[in-house]
Design a protein around this nucleic acid. Structure first.
Lengths: 152, 152
DNA sequence: GTTAAATAGATGTTACAACATTAAATGTAT
DNA sequence: ATACATTTAATGTTGTAACATCTATTTAAC
């Protein structure tokens, strides 16, 4: 369904305005879809994002501030997200040896297990993107990159 | 800056995964930029969205449920958003004649005035999208539409 | 006409986001 | 070495999002 139909708006000031609205709308749609997957496993998209980052580090611990740098939403409160993961035994925390301000975070076996369970679901979800070609996906990606470059 | 650099991730499982992450990341960026504009005027993006919808109706009142249908975020609590606008005298509410369950909402002169003030700022913000061509914008838009069609 | 179902909107509750502030440790300048 | 600034993470506060529930009204079924 076109964005015109979805938000019942026939005219847009420009192709840029339509794109801006479409981006926000599509992203909401996307996050809502993710939410549906994750809520059965009692985690949020943000928490999943942190878990993925932790797994990406292999068994190397990673500082809270480094997690933030890798987050999709840089403004999220990583400290509290880690709290949540800790409470569910999905991550563990230990103070950093060479910098006593910092805190090292590591994914637990249970966290890895949860991600393993989620992997096929997330993969299946990503496969729905096959309605566009891999080249088109790359194309949008690089246009999005270009878009954010107006930021200085 | 590429999404790879922004979230410090070198490899992606697929072009689709990169696109998914890029979409969420770009949308966060976008909403944050909007927030910066709106917060000086003490409204949220959601409230702005409602105001725009109200203005789009000209002077025809519109039901709360119809506003929701036009929202970018369909899950938002329109009732409370309208409350906020009411409290700031940016909208007014009157019970609907032919359906006493429904509530008609209308933008006030003050609301129109605020939008008028915001118009140049929003336009300027949209102009930053000129780093891509109008054709490219259309292209992304229709690919996004296509993407959401996997939803059935 | 009465009962049941559906719709519109408001409200209560819980968790989280946004933002500022704090506390401790580290870095830097003099 | 001391004073000041910076970094790192945690926490306090306020508002909002998410979700369920409630009330009033309308529509549909019998």
């Amino acid at each position: 369904m076109s964005i015109e139909t979805d938000i019942k708006q026939k005219k847009f000031r420009s192709a840029y305005q339509r794109l801006a609205l479409n981006l926000v709308y599509t992203s909401n749609w996307l996050e809502y879809k993710q939410l549906e997957i994750f809520k059965e496993y009692d985690i949020t998209s943000q928490q999943y994002n942190v878990l993925r980052i932790l797994r990406g580090q292999q068994s190397n611990p990673i500082k809270v501030s480094d997690i933030t740098e890798r987050m999709l939403d840089k403004n999220s409160n990583t400290s509290r997200l880690v709290d949540k993961l800790l409470a569910k035994n999905l991550a563990k925390r230990s103070s950093c040896a060479n910098d006593r301000r910092a805190v090292d975070v590591l994914i637990t076996e249970e966290g890895l297990q949860l991600l393993k369970e989620l992997d096929p679901l997330v993969a299946e979800w990503e496969n729905r993107f096959n309605v566009i070609t891999s080249e088109e996906a790359d194309q949008i990606s690089s246009l999005l990159d270009k878009l954010r470059e107006s930021d200085h």
